[in-house]
């Protein structure tokens, strides 16, 4: 089948991507080198494929590639500011929020979105906010701690570095 061209903005850069018309946004991102977005299930259950899509976090495995026409997206590769990690990344690193790391990019996207909406989340908010992202390694405790620490320690930095204010 002939490929189609999608014009969109990813991590602040405008892009023209060729895509198999049957492919999912997840495939197209990964085929174009953005492999930080992961596939855990392909059916919207695990959240490993989470990205920001027009300002909202979505499961990119559920988005047909052609829907990305004209969209603005941020993937895990666009979360840090150059060498400077985002406060959420910093916290995951420091407090053990990542073990095998496969859920981590998606989990960080969900955490960034959560903190954008609720800069002072309660534990219940965190649990709710991350419920669409599965982690098999951590038992979630250190992920909760990481998110807590972001708002306790560096709430304001987050606002500055977050690409989706």
């Amino acid at each position: 089948m002939p490929k189609q061209i999608i014009t969109c903005t990813i991590n602040g850069q405008s892009q023209r991507l060729d895509a198999h018309p049957m492919s999912r946004l997840l495939d197209v991102l990964r085929e174009h080198g953005l492999t930080g977005t992961k596939e855990g299930c392909g059916e919207g259950e695990c959240g490993a494929c989470s990205i920001f899509f027009n300002g909202r976090v979505v499961n990119s495995c559920l988005v047909p590639a052609l829907q990305a026409e004209g969209a603005t997206m941020t993937t895990i590769e666009g979360i840090a500011n150059g060498e400077q990690l985002h406060a959420v990344q910093e916290a995951f690193l420091k407090y053990g929020g990542a073990q095998c790391g496969i859920c981590t990019p998606g989990m960080i996207m969900a955490a960034v979105a959560l903190l954008k909406e609720k800069p002072n989340p309660t534990e219940a908010d965190i649990r709710e906010g991350l419920a669409g992202n599965l982690c098999r390694c951590t038992g979630y405790m250190k992920i909760f701690e990481s998110v807590m620490r972001v708002f306790k320690g560096k709430g304001t930095d987050l606002e500055e570095t977050c690409p989706h204010k």
Binding site: T35, L85, Q89, F92, A98, Q99, G101, P105
Partner: peptide, 14 residues
């Protein structure tokens, strides 16, 4: 974690 930075930035290669 030694390989943590690669994991939180999506650079780790699976």
């Amino acid at each position: 974690r030694r390989e943590g930075r690669e994991k939180v930035t999506g650079q780790a290669k699976y």
